[in-house]
Amino acid sequence: MHCLSIFLAAVLFAGAGSSAFAVKRKSHYHARPIYTHKRSHHHTRSRRTALEAKEEPARTTIPEESLQRVKLTPVPPLKGSRESLIRQNQRSEAEGLERIEDDDQLNELRRQHELVTVPVSMSLRVNPELPANRRYCRPWTAHFLSDLARVHYARFHRSLQVNSAVRTVAYQRRLIEINDNAAPAEGDIASPHLTGATIDIAKKGLSMSEVAWMRAYLLPLQTAGKIDVEEEFYQACFHITVYKPYTPHSKPKAAPANPGSKSALIAAGVQ
């Protein structure tokens, strides 16, 4: 009887050991797939991320503004020259623009809408010291000012200032007496302000970034022959003459009654 009890105890102990071993193996068996699954998911995700990074265009991961800064080439000062002043006078003459002699002629051009007011807005102001009858320019110059001021304001949230616009020959002669830097009132290097197509944008108050931006904005227009720029340092301004082709879509004026007159030839484009 005692031997039978010992035998049964041995059998039960052996069975319990086998069961424990089986449970341990089963637990170990399930642990491997779980660990393997996590590793496989991590590996797949890493591989997919690597592929996406390889296939994604660079400009979608780098802000467009940053790309533009990288590509931006600094533009040197747009200094004027005698040749530039001669060109401004020649082109103004070719476009049929006369030098405005006095206030009477200026007022007549205003009545005919040959001169329009400088387009003052939130983005563009006029120097308060500029006389009221000097705050006029040619229509295409006004269009240019509106475009320039709008784009500048969108970028910097600051307004530009016009320091000078149309002048008369009589006014220019007085200006020469007090300003040695003023251009002559006659000749091939006369001030282009006398035609009303030229304006001066103040540099004073502009940051270095704004000045650099102005140069980068104006240079392509000058290269395209739509404007001429002289960056002045004594007066600290951008002197800009705007040509008619800046607004090629503008409607031509009606031809005068006399088709053989000088005005009719100019309106028809015959220089």
Score class of each variant (00 low, 15 high):
residue 1 M to W: 11
residue 3 C to H: 15
residue 7 F to A: 15
residue 8 L to A: 14
residue 9 A to P: 00
residue 10 A to R: 12
residue 11 V to E: 09
residue 14 A to G: 14
residue 24 K to Q: 14
residue 27 S to P: 03
residue 27 S to E: 09
residue 31 A to C: 03
residue 33 P to K: 02
residue 38 K to A: 10
residue 44 T to G: 02
residue 44 T to L: 09
residue 44 T to W: 11
residue 46 S to M: 08
residue 47 R to I: 07
residue 47 R to V: 07
residue 54 K to M: 08
residue 57 P to Y: 00
residue 58 A to D: 09
residue 60 T to D: 13
residue 60 T to F: 08
residue 65 E to S: 14
residue 65 E to D: 11
residue 68 Q to I: 10
residue 70 V to W: 11
residue 88 Q to M: 15
residue 94 A to E: 12
residue 95 E to R: 01
residue 99 R to K: 07
residue 105 Q to N: 03
residue 106 L to S: 07
residue 113 H to D: 14
residue 116 V to A: 01
residue 118 V to T: 04
residue 119 P to C: 05
residue 124 L to G: 03
residue 126 V to H: 04
residue 127 N to I: 03
residue 128 P to S: 11
residue 133 N to W: 09
residue 133 N to M: 12
residue 134 R to K: 13
residue 139 P to E: 07
residue 143 H to S: 15
residue 144 F to E: 03
residue 146 S to C: 10
residue 149 A to P: 02
residue 159 S to M: 08
residue 160 L to T: 05
residue 164 S to Q: 07
residue 166 V to I: 14
residue 168 T to H: 06
residue 170 A to P: 02
residue 176 I to L: 14
residue 177 E to K: 13
residue 178 I to H: 10
residue 182 A to I: 01
residue 188 D to N: 07
residue 193 H to L: 04
residue 198 T to V: 01
residue 199 I to L: 06
residue 200 D to A: 05
residue 200 D to R: 01
residue 216 A to Y: 03
residue 219 L to P: 05
residue 222 Q to H: 04
residue 222 Q to V: 09
residue 230 E to M: 14
residue 237 C to V: 09
residue 244 K to P: 04
residue 245 P to F: 09
residue 252 P to C: 06
residue 255 A to K: 13
residue 256 P to G: 05
residue 258 N to I: 00
residue 260 G to K: 13
residue 261 S to T: 05
residue 262 K to G: 08
residue 263 S to I: 11
residue 267 A to W: 05
